[in-house]
Amino acid sequence: MMDVGIPEGMNVSSTSEGLKIERKWFSGVTIFLTVFAVLWNGFLFNWYNHAHNFELFPEKNMLVVLVPLLFVAVGVVLTYYVIASYFNKTIITVNHRTLESKISPFPFGFKKSIPSRSIEQVYCKEITRGINNDIRVLFEVRVILKNRSNITLFSGLESSEQALFLEHEIESYLGIKDVSVKGELS
């Protein structure tokens, strides 16, 4: 594998714990989602604020009250994700004992910890998501363990450079020879 420079939004440092790679979540998508969340929540606030004037809440029809709460739930989750996108970073720590991935400061997902000795190969995969003409390409970094199980270490990367960089740094630190994996990003 060729040497890849440090991509935008990432930071690498050597610490007493080992190699530490940080990736900030903030991207152009965060701006779009911020605007969308403000519009979504603004509409809901306005709707609930004026709904009593339209007599939309008949006493006997609780379904009319409960169904819009699904939209409120979407607004709450969307707002949490947007706030997390401004502040969060994923931190990968690699040492000869473990490979660890965690998200901080806002909890989002689960911390992953993999014994370094169980790692056979690290590779990247291109993931295509979308419907019709709205196709989005994202990248994942995956780990193949010696027992042949396959674990997604990092997903949702917007550039192949970030994925390839993570693969290269982890393999270099752990002394893993880069071997071709079927379906990997080249």
Rank of each mutant, 00 (worst) to 15 (best):
M1Q: 10
I6Y: 14
P7S: 14
G9M: 10
N11R: 15
S16D: 13
G18D: 13
I21S: 12
R23A: 14
K24C: 11
K24R: 13
W25K: 14
F26Y: 15
S27M: 09
G28N: 14
I31T: 12
F32Q: 04
F36A: 12
L44T: 06
H50I: 02
H52D: 08
N53M: 08
L56V: 07
E59V: 06
N61T: 04
M62L: 15
M62T: 10
L66R: 09
V67L: 15
V67G: 07
L70C: 10
V77N: 10
V77Q: 11
T79S: 15
T79Y: 06
Y80W: 14
V82S: 04
I83M: 06
I83A: 07
A84W: 05
A84S: 12
N88A: 06
N88P: 07
K89E: 10
I92R: 01
L99S: 01
S101H: 03
S104Y: 09
S104E: 13
P105S: 10
F106A: 06
F108T: 04
P115T: 09
S116C: 08
S116D: 06
I119E: 03
I119W: 04
Q121C: 02
Q121G: 01
V122Q: 01
C124N: 06
K125M: 14
E126L: 11
T128K: 13
I131R: 08
I131K: 07
N132H: 15
N132P: 07
N133G: 15
N133A: 14
I135K: 15
I135M: 14
V137C: 02
L138R: 07
F139Q: 01
E140K: 08
V141N: 02
I144T: 07
R148H: 09
N150V: 04
I151G: 00
I151H: 00
T152Q: 01
G156I: 03
L157A: 09
S159K: 13
L166W: 03
E167I: 00
H168Y: 03
E169V: 01
E169N: 03
I170P: 00
Y173S: 02
G175E: 02
D178A: 08
V181F: 01
V181K: 04
V181W: 00
